[in-house]
Design a protein around this nucleic acid. Structure first.
Lengths: 136, 136
DNA sequence: TACTTGCTTCGAGTGCACTCGAAGGTTCTA
DNA sequence: TAGAACCTTCGAGTGCACTCGAAGCAAGTA
């Protein structure tokens, strides 16, 4: 399968071992296997002897997951999304909804943080007024 | 002490019981006591019989802590800040530094999230193109 | 051939931030 | 005066997301 891949990707390897992916992503091999086990990876290819061979696509997915992780999205929700991807085309509506909900969440997180930033700025400006240091 | 307080605050009570504060903040009494125990509260007043009496100032502090918590700031760092506050005027430089470091952290968190938002928007726009739903 | 890397399953450990319950007491409120 | 709310200390439990180690074996590399 995927003869197409080999012709459309003339530069760079498209199959990475688990330790290579670990080095590239900063995740451990343990964690990568765990991601797969809990269903957070949409099917990882294997070599003829059963070793994992990650593709560029997998790396992209991991990068995406990394981003989602930064938003504080629970792993369960990411797993849900991965499931939908595995299930194919007919889940696209639900996937889109999930992404849009996430987008709203991220936006309100940003708003919260900007709020906090404002509070910090006020606090910091108090210290700036008395710019000597030990002055009351 | 603080006779000033009683005159400058004619409206609203300025002493809250632990259950009132729990109701106002959404934290449990257990958690409020825990905050005090670990040094996250800059000294809570007591009634003559030893019960906690939180002030408006304490509520403000808790609101601030709540904001910091949203940024993902570790509790240890907040405790450090509370310590500095307790230690008095001569720590103001360090406090300011801590706040500025936090501000930078928050700003980069915001940047990360905006990055993620961009990725989400791209993903979502893919779904928008095929606006029928099940269309390939 | 030796060594490294990979595979599996299993289960335990870690760190954080709570969260809860219980025991045994005191104080407040209707 | 009854019952609710408060106090203390202690220690255990929870949920999340890893994180690690070990056992026992297969495959790849110098």
């Amino acid at each position: 399968m995927s003869v197409i891949e080999s012709t459309t990707r003339p530069e760079g390897k498209d199959r990475y071992t688990i330790s290579e992916v670990a080095a590239l992503t900063g995740l451990t091999a343990h964690t990568l296997r765990w991601y797969e086990r809990i269903g957070l990876m949409p099917h990882v290819d294997r070599s003829h002897t059963g070793q994992r061979r990650f593709t560029e696509r997998d790396l992209h997915w991991l990068a995406f997951v990394g981003k989602l992780r930064l938003t504080g999205m629970p792993v369960a929700a990411m797993v849900r999304y991965a499931e939908l991807v595995r299930e194919g085309e007919h889940t696209s509506a639900e996937r889109r909804e999930l992404l849009e909900t996430t987008r709203r969440d991220v936006q309100s997180r940003i708003a919260e943080l900007q709020d906090t930033l404002a509070v910090l700025d006020i606090k910091i400006s108090h210290y700036e007024e008395q710019c000597g240091g030990t002055t009351r």
